[in-house]
Design a protein around this nucleic acid. Structure first.
Lengths: 241, 241
DNA sequence: GCCGATTTGTCCGTATGTATC
DNA sequence: CGATACATACGGACAAATCGG
């Protein structure tokens, strides 16, 4: 099912840019020309271009045109920057992903845990520890907290496969946005144990803490992802307002 | 000089949200109501709201309304997430900022440097090392590369004060966007020397590498910022497309 | 379960402003 | 100065989701 025109145009232009249809620093065809090409209105085309601007793919210049500033990234390791599953990301990069569940429990949050996660005190959650392997190397240990109320029927078997597939396909939940904070922390015993980090080497991990909301506006997940520092990259494009 | 209506509305709503005019999880007034309030068109209002969605301040729900999902952040330390000067950020957080220039040179990039920065080979640049102090604690060491062609007349004196003020006020350059990559790296001798990092403590730094473009579409700056890991936070909000 | 009212989502056409060439 | 190209803003039409009676 086709979703929307502006989205289709966005994807088409994005792909053209990634395929080097336009050289780096080259101007894209002007709005009027693209409107002709896609047979859409000006607003619709501009909306698609706006998404490319947010992605850091192009830059619009009043009076001049739209410049391609996309450069393919070196892409050595794991990538973030969107809401994307570990498995999705691995597949995209042509790598072999595997997930192991180290702990699957249910608990009621105490005050400290509530403050950390952003859930209300005494909230009932699933607490899951999972280790993500890429090409047989343990890269990430995830501490997942899922609100039971919003994610009923979660099991260890689902956690071993794909929680997000369960959320979207079975529970028909829609993930909308995810607030993240990136920090660097000392390795813990758990990190050492599961990530096989040698203390002599790195004594830190990259930590991504995220609060994820569904389309009902409820925060249903808090996750702390602890990454091996040597396989961690976080992309971002900031646009001056 | 007033810039644009949607921007004004965006700022006004943003401030209202930050000031807790609406409770967490509360619905904002519906579009039609806000259109009345601001006396603008629907498109204009929706544009303002769209910016708030990108910021992770609100969530729109078709058929229901616009929900406030803003939660004030704990705000212990240094903050990124926008294009913002070190000094700007410090002032915003009510802290005392100071910048020391450790090195100010000009150089022509070799192949390796060109690959790292994204500038063309043999490009002429200013290479500057600066240490940023917050409340007398050295937090960041910056390795700045500025394209001489685009940033003429840079001096050590300017670097000690504020390069961005020089760019915007004197050269009348407009900064548009900045692509960033966050990684974690081992501390170097330079890091240890200037950041006073004890090797026994953390042996890593948080590294933000950024390529910054001006309104002419030219990348005029490459900077590698190396942060003390214990004072580093990187905020982000990802929206599902 | 249906229907209508409310509310957000998408799309179009047009007018005007501003920067560049 | 005129032509080109992007930026802002308005108004209208219809679709889709939600909610209450």
């Amino acid at each position: 099912m086709p979703k929307s025109i502006y989205e289709d145009i966005y994807k088409d232009l994005k792909q053209k840019i990634e395929n080097n249809t336009f050289a780096y620093q080259e101007l894209l065809p002007p709005e009027n020309s693209l409107i002709q090409t896609y047979g859409c209105s000006r607003n619709t085309l501009r909306r698609a271009v706006g998404l490319l601007v947010n992605d850091g793919y192009v830059q619009t210049m009043q009076g001049k045109g739209v410049r391609n500033i996309y450069q393919p990234c070196e892409q050595t390791a794991f990538t973030i920057g969107e809401i994307e599953t570990f498995t999705e990301s691995a597949v995209r990069n042509g790598q072999q992903a595997f997930t192991r569940v180290a702990l699957f429990t249910e608990l009621q949050l105490n005050k400290k845990q509530a403050a950390m996660t952003g859930f209300p005190e005494n909230a009932e959650v699933y607490y899951i520890q999972r280790i993500h392997y890429l090409d047989d190397v343990p890269l990430i240990i995830n501490h997942n907290y899922f609100l039971k109320e919003a994610v009923p029927g979660l099991t260890k078997e689902i956690a071993e496969h794909s929680i997000y597939q369960y959320l979207e396909n079975t529970l028909h939940m829609t993930i909308v946005n995810s607030k993240r904070i990136m920090t660097v922390e000392k390795v813990t015993e758990i990190d050492e144990k599961y990530l096989a980090l040698n203390i002599k080497d790195y004594n830190c991990v990259a930590v991504v803490s995220s609060q994820t909301y569904n389309s009902d506006g409820v925060m249903f997940e808090y996750t702390q992802s602890r990454h091996r520092p040597d396989h961690f990259r976080f992309y971002d494009n900031a646009v001056r307002k």
